[in-house]
């Protein structure tokens, strides 16, 4: 029993150490695709806010547009203008580098 508890405490310490390691933080933005250029791999998105209502379940347009670089992104279903997308990105050298992009519109259709 003592040996087991000892092992357990070692496990506790290791787990806490693991959690203390810094993770990369990513910004998340959700909005409507304005343009998605497959050649330059740049996507323009109109940002939506967080005020979800039954009518606007993805939030309301804020009018602010942002440009993202998809060159290194994990892309699922290709977004066409009008699709709601959710993007995890980080800013590298002033550029918005996308880590992964989710096509909310098209994935909601096939959910469940």
């Amino acid at each position: 029993m003592k040996k087991r508890l000892c092992l357990y405490y070692i496990g506790c310490v290791l787990t806490l150490l693991l959690l203390a390691l810094p993770t990369m933080a990513a910004e998340v933005v959700q909005g409507k695709t304005v343009t998605n250029d497959l050649n330059t791999k740049l996507i323009t998105v109109e940002e939506y806010d967080l005020k979800f209502t039954p009518q606007n379940k993805y939030g309301n347009p804020t009018g602010k547009t942002m440009v993202f670089d998809l060159s290194e992104a994990l892309i699922g279903k290709e977004a066409v203008p009008g699709d709601i997308v959710r993007i995890a990105y980080k800013v590298v050298d002033g550029k918005n580098k996308v880590i992964r992009i989710m096509n909310v519109t098209r994935q909601d259709v096939m959910k469940k």
Binding site: I75, K77, R86, I87, A88
Partner: peptide
Amino acid sequence: AEMLIVVADSRR
């Protein structure tokens, strides 16, 4: 078929 990518909404 294309992958389904999920982005967790950290704004919420």
